[in-house]
């Protein structure tokens, strides 16, 4: 799958509180959460972000709380992919689980500037900076995680598993 959009360059340690403030955690509505994504960090972001745009951040993206709302808010804002030098571990799991594409590549982050046009092939992790014509290869996911992504997420994976086991005591 190909995605294309403008880069929003962010710094390091972008935490879940600035991705979506706790004052909006009384809902799981994707659109509603999306309206407030990153608002305490950059008011312009939500006014100017376009569907398909890409967040490009330094180390430890998504640190802090376990709120899945953070990954949902980014999705709700129309972001097609987050590229970072590294992700905090709970955010990493949440992104995979809610189907928000994320890629790790230090090189790509170093050679992408704010506003650059970026094209990504999500199927193989190839990142192209259309503005400076450089291309990068993101770190591949472990096979185990690829399998979750390929099956359409953790819940779909489980649904398939339980269906296959029908008749066992966990099914009523």
């Amino acid at each position: 799958m190909l995605v294309e959009g403008k880069a929003w360059k962010l710094g390091k340690n972008i935490n879940t509180d600035v991705i979506i403030s706790a004052r909006y955690l009384n809902t799981f509505d994707l659109t509603e959460l999306g309206k407030h994504c990153l608002e305490d960090l950059n008011e312009e972001f939500i006014k100017k972000v376009k569907p398909g745009d890409i967040i490009v951040a330094e180390e430890n993206f998504g640190c802090g709380s376990s709120r899945e709302h953070a990954a949902l808010a980014i999705k709700g804002a129309g972001i097609s992919c987050v590229i970072a030098k590294s992700f905090a571990r709970i955010f990493f799991r949440n992104a995979i689980n809610v189907g928000l594409p994320i890629l790790e590549s230090s090189e790509a982050v170093d050679y992408i500037s704010n506003g650059d046009k970026i094209k990504i092939d999500l199927s193989n992790g190839k990142i192209i900076n259309l503005t400076n014509k450089k291309s990068f290869q993101a770190q591949p996911f472990p096979d185990f995680i690829k399998e979750i992504i390929n099956q359409g997420g953790l819940i779909k994976c489980l649904k398939n598993k339980f269906k296959a086991q029908e008749g066992e005591k966990c099914i009523e």
């Binding site: 802090g64 709380s65 376990s66 899945e68 709970i90 799991r93 949440n94 997420g153 953790l154 819940i155």
Partner: peptide, 23 residues
């Protein structure tokens, strides 16, 4: 636990860690 501070229980000699809602 679906709360990042689930790691608190390590003080008891347990393994505990935070996850999101889907996990």
């Amino acid at each position: 636990g679906a709360d990042s501070h689930t790691c608190t229980y390590g003080a008891l000699g347990a393994f505990s860690t935070g996850v999101g809602s889907t996990d």
